[in-house]
Amino acid sequence: MKELKFKSLKPLLMACLIAMLAIGCESPPEKTIVSINPNYEIASPEYSNLAAKALTELTNFQFDSWGTMLAEDVEFYFPDGDAGTRTKLSGKSNVLDWWKNWKETSGVQSMTYTDNVELPVIAKETMAYSGLTGVMVISYFSNEIVYQEGTVKLRMNFAAHFNKDNLIDRYYTYYDRSGIIEMMNKNILDSE
């Protein structure tokens, strides 16, 4: 008797299974996302490549090569404050001198630049914080900094602005510095 009930349910179960498969295999309804911001456009991938090359040079301590990608009037902003309180280095020679000195005095052994994403945009209107227009590449990446005493792993965000000669004239950096301060047992930006 149990067998008869199952046989009578078999066509119904088969129909339900076919219906579920048919419904589950349908394409989801298309969603049209319209997001137009007249102040920005996507920039050429060339800028993404330049930003990635610059960060590769920096994290490989190839400071002179990195310097060829910087404008003479470059400004480098550290992530230690807000718009009016951040530590800022101005001028290519000051930026390069700071990084070379940091390499020599920090105990750093190596850095890596991995899992990177670069987003190149063109600001057609003046951006609020920087006061700039033109091409900016927003990069986020993983950086493993190896010191003599240990390792610090960070997810970092750098925004590089390019001038009309395709040289970087601004770096805005955003990352949590607490691991670096703890590893070095001091805040090196306090002396800036």
Rank of each mutant, 00 (worst) to 15 (best):
K31D: 13
T32P: 05
I33W: 08
V34C: 04
S35N: 14
P38C: 08
E41K: 14
E41T: 10
I42T: 10
I42H: 12
I42Q: 15
E46S: 12
A51Q: 09
L55D: 15
L58A: 08
W66R: 09
W66E: 09
G67R: 07
M69H: 15
M69R: 14
A71L: 01
V74P: 06
F76L: 11
D80Q: 01
A83G: 08
G84N: 09
R86A: 08
T87D: 00
K88F: 11
K88Y: 01
S90F: 12
S90K: 14
G91D: 10
G91S: 10
S93T: 14
N94C: 00
N94Y: 05
L96H: 03
W98H: 01
E104G: 01
E104Y: 05
G107M: 03
V108S: 07
S110F: 00
M111F: 03
M111Q: 03
T112V: 08
T112F: 03
N116T: 07
N116F: 10
V117L: 09
E118R: 01
K124W: 02
E125A: 13
S130M: 07
G131F: 00
G131C: 06
G131H: 02
L132I: 10
G134E: 12
V135C: 04
V135K: 04
S139H: 02
S139N: 08
S142N: 15
V146Q: 06
Y147I: 09
E149W: 08
G150W: 00
G150C: 11
K153C: 00
L154R: 07
N157G: 11
F158C: 07
A159C: 05
A159S: 06
A159N: 13
H161D: 14
H161V: 15
F162D: 12
F162H: 10
D169E: 08
Y172F: 12
